[in-house]
Nucleic acid binder design. Structure first.
Lengths: 291, 291
DNA sequence: AAAACACCGAAACATATGTTTCAGATAGCG
DNA sequence: CGCTATCTGAAACATATGTTTCGGTGTTTT
């Protein structure tokens, strides 16, 4: 070895001493190593939102003569570990009942998650999601309920939704009783209910209550015949296959995120303006770390 | 899309019908596929002892419009990505002002999410996750902190973890001040911190406090140089690329779920017994709907 | 033998790339 | 306040890149 230090490590260790703009460049490079190997310097600079000169300066700052040298290093790295997905699967399978049981488990989890995810974006689901969006756009208030393991996805949606709409209510029962928050729900509102087997009683009750008040329901659940999905306006059925005792809520979360993205895209300028305002407000509160 | 044939196969099948010089070029390309991905066209031509024009002609001979298209194909093969980031971006842009804009957006979101997910389960990440598990198993108390958009993933882990271990603490600041919950943290404990750009001040402060008390930190974040990741025991770097203004936390959530699954798998019978006990307790409380 | 044809490589071309230069901006300090 | 030192981005620069053009070569066809 000797002088052949790993440039990536060097970039990390020197990161603190770099100028702000160089940090931006360095950060992009660290986060997208394959870009260095495959794309041009100017293209990388463009993606990092930095002028080309900054990248050249970064090179000399970390003691690299030329971009070529840097690129070569990353190309070799890329060639050394052609850890393709398929190859990885084969390797892990070969050593199935072996010492690296853990690796195999994680590999299998990854595949399952990807399957769950693609199942959530089939054409039928996509059109259901678009319907859901229309329902949300026309609703007076949007209630979101998800208990237990479904709570993260519900929270995620409520959190993002609140950044550009103020008619969202996360029914989390954190303060006082659960039912209080649903008071006044009616036919012009909308309830988004999340939950998979085993169905949590609270969630089902919330759905039943909403329906009794003629409030339409969007069900994000694991089956067309789940107690949450009965008579729902839209049934967003997500797979939650998992290797562990615990169902996977990855697909639910992803779908909720996709709904938010879709709402924003359809909302156009107005939505973006509200987001900007919300973020500025957060910045005022000193929520975020400065650059 | 649709007619997305494999260009390498095309090269092989058409080989016989090519002119001698083109065969020389084709042959070199077949023998050195990574050269196509990494080097320039002229460089490849030089190595193949062929003028550049021959390579261009070869492109049109096999029905490829431009060398870029050819190179992109080989780059994707090298990365084993079903669709390149650039390609995806172009596709989405192309159909931006279209009738079925929504469908395209969702389709593109799905692909991005899958990319994020596979990036979270690369061999390096897998080994980091296993290290993380060992750290968790040896910790006295396990603190989990994630604010804002990172909260779902933190909650998810804490919720599942509590079903089979009782030394987990979700630092959510719901009651009283944030710092209170970290009181007494020390070198035998462990802090799992989640957060992506823009970094929420509270999270960073929690990390700094933990480090000042010599408590090791596991960082689930978006970059090796994120303020959360500095001096972390394990850096679990997850991609959060997203089509919307909002980062995607799908990969974070999935990784946390995977950690739980891994912990349970390594925990063996004991873990399963505890889970059974926890579920029975929940059933006693009438949490779930009966069948 | 001449014409028609496919094939080839040097050179021309417009564009893109990596690097350097320079002038303005910004922050630190006496 | 002024002075310095650093940082930054636009522009300039020489070079490299992908593609096209064009004339030349050899082979086939009539």
């Amino acid at each position: 070895m000797g002088v052949q230090t790993d440039l990536r490590e060097k970039l990390i260790s020197d990161y603190a001493k770099l100028s702000p703009q160089m940090q931006k460049a360095a950060r992009y490079i660290l986060d997208h190593p394959s870009d260095v190997a495959l794309r041009s310097m100017r293209a990388v600079a463009r993606s990092a939102n930095v002028p080309p000169s900054t990248v050249t300066r970064l090179m000399s700052a970390i003691g690299v003569e030329t971009w070529q040298e840097f690129r070569d290093h990353y190309q070799n790295r890329l060639l050394d570990q052609p850890a393709s997905y398929a190859q990885r699967a084969r390797e892990t399978q070969r050593t199935e009942n072996d010492a690296n049981r853990d690796e195999h488990l994680l590999e299998s989890i990854c595949r399952t998650e990807i399957d769950n995810l693609s199942a959530a974006f089939t054409p039928e689901m996509v059109s259901s999601m678009i319907e859901t969006c229309e329902a949300i756009e026309n609703a007076r208030q949007v209630f979101i309920v998800g208990r237990g393991a479904a709570y993260p996805a519900a929270f995620q949606f409520a959190y993002a939704y609140r950044l550009f709409c103020d008619n969202g209510v996360l029914v989390d029962g954190h303060s006082g009783t659960f039912g209080d928050e649903l008071r006044g729900i009616g036919r012009r509102d909308l309830l988004i209910a999340l939950g998979a087997k085993p169905y949590i009683r609270d969630t089902v009750r919330a759905v039943e209550f909403a329906r009794s008040q003629h409030c339409p329901v969007i069900a994000v659940t694991d089956s067309d015949v789940s107690p949450i999905a009965t008579d729902a306006l839209c049934k967003l059925v997500v797979r939650d296959t998992s290797q562990s005792f615990f169902q996977s809520f990855t697909a639910s979360l992803s779908m909720m995120q996709a709904l938010v993205a879709l709402l924003v895209a359809r909302g156009g300028h107005k939505a973006l303006q509200r987001i900007a305002a919300a973020e500025e407000q957060l910045a005022r509160f000193d929520t975020y770390l400065e650059e």
